[in-house]
Design a protein around this nucleic acid. Structure first.
Lengths: 256, 256
DNA sequence: CGCCAACTTGATGGCTGTCAAGTCAGGTGG
DNA sequence: CCACCTGACTTGACAGCCATCAAGTTGGCG
């Protein structure tokens, strides 16, 4: 446990102490992410109850951590703006990105089981999260059935998502993985009102590779190849999907 | 509430595979798996409330399904005896085993998010599960805080477990994966009072390979090699771990 | 302008997939 | 009881995908 901290402290976490903590009351009832986030499906009255539950927002600068593995678990976080990655670090130094999270998505549910976080959450751009004290959420969801149900769905969705990643890591080849990754990002940006075809990657090739179980060179080569055959155009972190169908066909193709 | 029992009995699935349905009342309060299963941490009184919630047990013969992908979600299942696998099937024919479950573990949480199961659960030996109607579980956990908390922990544990598998698939080599798999099984058998060193594999090499993202030949070779170097002895599905430490060292070793 | 991290591209090697042949164990029927 | 059959497993040979190592390019920032 303690030796893990040595590994993590390298860069981002030294800067973690001076987190800006706003005492601003957040208000789900006035948040435009309602339909993506925890309040989904709640009545106006119920959302107002949620308002009182969410104490503070927290601003996290690019590169800084929101929580880290080993830390006590107190709250889950709803991303109000920005972009995060979560990663797990093994004692031997190996690590892997377990997910990328964007606005409206919930962070920190890994910590519930052992009352201790089991992964690190790091902002990939300046971000803001709503802090949801977990005991309070449980308390409210004992009274508000729709909230209880929706929270269970959020947790379950995380399980289903993880199964998808396991499928990707276990059965797909490099280019299939990257295609699936791009289409997933595209779909999630679409759900947030952004362009499905054009977006900016917040993460490095190395982080993509870590997530996909590949080395950064392989990711880079796959990007180049996709560009050669006209599926996408890439310029550094700017992605333009030119042939959505081509990418989809690549994934569903038998690997033979 | 009542329509749930109908769902179980007139399930179209019963027409495909003849499931044996017992009307026996189950009783968590008299179950020796309490400490591993959903009742963990509950008081005597609270466990009695759980008793009333669990309607029926269901017997599943080896090779039969408990639920399958696409089916409506009504209940989660606690394994009372036996052994299961869950797998996901892609349209193109690729499939992957996403987990192996043993007594006391909970099946079916993948179905909560979309109210439809997203994977198949198949018995690898004759098994028996306690059917826990999900709406009832939610109802009771609104009244019993310890149950609510524990159920959240169970879901969270599934997320953490999946992260472990992602780590395994994304960063480990074939023999490391198999070593991690064997140690995980050993530890779970131990928690159930069985030998840590000697056990019987319920799954085929192909199923192990699918879970670990490997081909069955690779699994077989890794078993043979482990035997050569004295880590284990294998005879078909019978495993004897001879050098626990050796396996652990293999995993934590840098892959270089 | 110069530095550095991120990225691209090439050459090579190794792990694991693929194909193939053979062995083993368990179950069935004559 | 035994021959037979089938599915599961083992082992070998070879090939391909991706990791590794290396060198060069680009873009952002002080």
């Amino acid at each position: 446990m303690t030796q893990i901290k040595q590994q993590v402290t390298d860069d981002s976490y030294c800067n973690v102490i001076p987190l800006t903590l706003t005492t601003l009351k957040t208000a789900c009832s006035q948040c435009n992410l309602r339909e993506l986030c925890l309040p989904f499906g709640l009545s106006e009255e119920e959302i107002h109850k949620l308002d009182s539950l969410i104490g503070v927002r927290r601003r996290i600068k690019r590169g800084q951590g929101l929580y880290r593995s080993g830390e006590g678990f107190e709250a889950i976080y709803a991303i109000r703006s920005g972009f995060f990655k979560t990663d797990v670090l093994l004692e031997d130094g190996r690590d892997q990105v377990t997910g990328f999270q964007m606005t409206g998505e919930i962070l920190g549910m890994d910590g519930i089981s052992g009352e201790t976080h089991t992964c690190n959450a790091v902002a990939l751009e300046d971000s803001e999260v709503c802090v949801i004290p977990f005991a309070d959420l449980e308390g409210l969801s004992r009274n508000v059935q729709t909230l209880q149900r929706h929270f269970h769905k959020v947790m379950s969705r995380e399980i289903v998502r993880d199964h998808g990643v396991m499928m990707l890591l276990g059965t797909m080849r490099a280019e299939e993985r990257l295609a699936a990754f791009l289409l997933n990002l595209s779909q999630r940006f679409t759900a947030r009102g952004y362009s499905a075809a054009e977006f900016h990657l917040r993460m490095t090739r190395e982080e993509i590779g870590s997530y996909l179980g590949l080395k950064l060179e392989t990711v880079s080569r796959a990007f180049s190849h996709f560009q050669e055959v006209g599926y996408i155009s890439v310029q550094q972190k700017h992605i333009h999907i030119l042939d959505n169908h081509g990418l989809k066909k690549l994934i569903s193709h038998q690997h033979g």
